[in-house]
Design a protein around this nucleic acid. Structure first.
Length: 560
RNA sequence: UGGGGCAUGGUGCAACGGCAGCACACCGGACUUUGAAUCCGUGGAUCCAGGUUCGAAUCCUGGUGCCCCGGCCA
């Protein structure tokens, strides 16, 4: 094992190492990522994707993409397409190993016939309610179905007629014959097939009986030669059933391994709840930048590499835990700080007039694009003139003691340009500062004074004459509590939504180079943070930027 | 005495009988053409009680706490 793999030590790798030592799978490692196409992928899925693809890659194995499409009433091709796009975006490749559980419907049917012939499955006419009653309780065993001891011939005949569509939905089910006295509910004669006269997004109306997850998943894994079937903790109780089907069918037997799903502070990680947000209009779509969906994060400006290193750094265990959102933002900031293009932009403009700079003069400064990236030392030219915009928060008429940006009588550095000193403040009738006058030091061109005197403050600016107008959208955390599931009695989780999670700023002033920004490109706008040119709403002439990082503690500060 | 699973700084993850370590967060300092970033540093943890052992986060016994399971969802 390489040091790299060793450094990623986790219990799943321990299990695989043991298999490799005992030779259980002949040294082979083959995983799969098996989403149900009933919603968009979110950051929690990214953990699973990185795990499955990452482990297989490190052990020289392969990973399949398989859609677990056994419930046609919830699934849709829209989801299939978005899932594939998201995985590709993350940078993982499943080559031609793209499968669907529905590919195996015929195989699954054949296996069911086998189980019936073996006396291990039967057709049951108990209604859903009756079945629940017969299943028993946590402390009491269940009762056997009155249909449990039909003959093989009768069961075979009934299954055939189920498939042929003779019966309406819910008329009967095919059940495995295991043990109604088992303390594990999953073993109390679980349903294998139910009747569903529904249009399937791939098999259309070929079938009106559909296999249940527990039955379909293990057989699908087996058929594909999956060695390690990695799933989340809630399936631990299902493993005995997973094993039972494969043992009874006497087919290739993968190992199911369970890990704890990802929980993030401030973040809802439930497809059902996320769907609710879309349907009830809390967000505009699945790829709304406030959504924790991968599509939303992409639009927000998250990078695949940041998400992958996040998955790496949070590790894998069986502990139920909640990872701090700050860690995700740290990893992204780390990536963007080095690789995002640096630009100047003024979100809330304040006009600055440099009185001793000639009105008709123009010059430009060469400014590095990636000051933190040693591999990319490219520069761009930024125009300068006598009228500028600065961030209104970078000026204070009556500054507190430790404020060292612009203020009356104070000198600051205009980033990469000149030292300026504030000489006059102009206000409107309401007393609002409308513009500020300064003088500049011609000797300080480039941002260094000739006499070596230092200024503490450095601020960004944009030439008014050259600026590009834009709209900037500030997306904040959608949820206002570290754990959005902690709701008051009788409340819905949406009660915890931050109603001000979107602020639209119009009239933002950008340096002209930003007119050539590419959709999806992330930028670092000096003190204002990171932004991404929106992929959906942007039209020529109206640049729309989404804020990439919203500081979690902005919420904490608001609370004070 | 239903069954299954999990407990390590504030948070997440390591250590697999041998000096409890890493990251985030917090705090302090240095540096800085943004107060960001970067660099350096401090503090802080093995759920409890027994037992085995020269030695226990790790093994054993008994507690405690939390999570999951009674869909014809996955």
């Amino acid at each position: 094992m390489s040091d790299l793999v060793k450094s990623k030590s986790n219990f799943i790798r321990d299990i695989i190492d043991e298999h490799n030592q005992t030779g259980r799978f002949g040294g082979k490692v083959h995983t799969r990522f098996p989403p149900e196409p009933n919603g968009y992928l979110h950051i929690g899925h990214a953990k699973s994707i990185c795990l499955n693809f990452g482990i297989a890659k490190d052990y020289g194995g392969l990973t399949n993409l398989r859609f677990d499409d056994t419930n046609p009433t919830k699934e849709d091709v829209e989801y299939v397409e978005s899932i594939k796009a998201n995985i590709r975006w993350l940078g993982f490749d499943w080559d031609d190993r793209e499968y669907f559980a529905s590919d195996y419907f015929e195989t699954l049917y054949d296996c069911a016939v086998q189980l019936i012939k073996k006396g291990k499955a039967f057709v049951c006419h108990l209604s859903a309610d009756e079945l629940r009653d017969y299943r028993g309780t946590l402390t009491e065993p269940g009762r056997e179905s009155p249909y449990r001891n039909r003959t093989v011939e009768e069961n075979l005949d009934l299954l055939t007629r189920m498939r042929q569509g003779e019966f309406p939905d819910g008329y009967c089910t095919l059940r495995a014959k295991i043990d109604m006295g088992s303390p594990n509910f999953n073993m109390r004669d679980p349903v294998m097939y139910r009747i569903l006269h529904a249009e399937h997004h791939r098999t259309a109306d070929d079938w009106c009986i559909y296999p249940m997850y527990d039955y379909a998943h293990c057989v699908s894994d087996s058929v594909e030669g999956i060695t390690h079937s990695i799933c989340t903790l809630e399936f631990e109780d299902h493993r005995p059933l997973y094993d039972w089907f494969l043992d009874e069918l006497e087919i290739f037997h993968p190992q199911q391994i369970e890990f704890a799903r990802l929980n993030l502070t401030y973040t809802v990680m439930s497809k059902r709840k996320l769907l609710q947000l879309v349907k009830e209009g809390f967000v505009t779509s699945w790829d709304d930048p406030r959504m924790p969906s991968l599509s939303g994060m992409q639009r927000r400006g998250y990078t695949p590499s940041a998400i992958k290193s996040f998955a790496e750094i949070i590790g894998v265990a069986k502990n139920n835990s909640i990872v701090d959102m700050e860690l995700l933002e740290h990893v992204l900031r780390d990536d963007l700080n080095q690789h995002a293009t640096r630009r100047m932009a003024v979100l809330r403009p304040l006009k600055v007039i440099i009185d001793n700079y000639p009105e008709d003069k123009e010059e430009s400064f060469e400014v590095p694009d990636f000051p933190q990236d040693p591999d990319r030392q490219t520069k761009r030219s930024v125009p300068f003139s006598n009228v500028l915009y600065i961030e209104s928060e970078d000026f204070m008429e009556n500054p507190p003691a430790k404020y060292y940006r612009l203020a009356p009588g104070k000198e600051v550095r205009l980033m990469n340009a000149y030292y300026v000193t504030c000489t006059e403040v102009v206000k409107d009738e309401a007393g609002q500062v409308t513009e500020v006058h300064c003088t500049y030091d011609p000797e300080s061109r480039g941002g260094m004074s000739a006499d070596g005197r230092k200024v503490r403050g450095t601020i960004h600016w944009v030439s008014a004459r050259h600026a590009v107008d834009a709209e900037v959208r500030l997306y904040d955390m959608l949820f206002t509590k570290p754990n959005p599931y902690e709701v008051e009695e009788g409340g819905d989780f949406t009660d915890n939504i931050n109603k001000h999670s979107l602020e639209v700023l119009k009239g933002c002033k950008l340096e002209p180079n930003l007119a050539f920004a590419e959709v999806g490109q992330s930028f670092q706008f000096m003190r204002n943070g990171y932004f991404c040119l929106d992929m959906v709403d942007s039209k020529p002439g109206s640049l729309v930027f989404n804020r990439t990082i919203s500081l979690v503690d902005s919420w904490a500060k608001m609370q004070k």
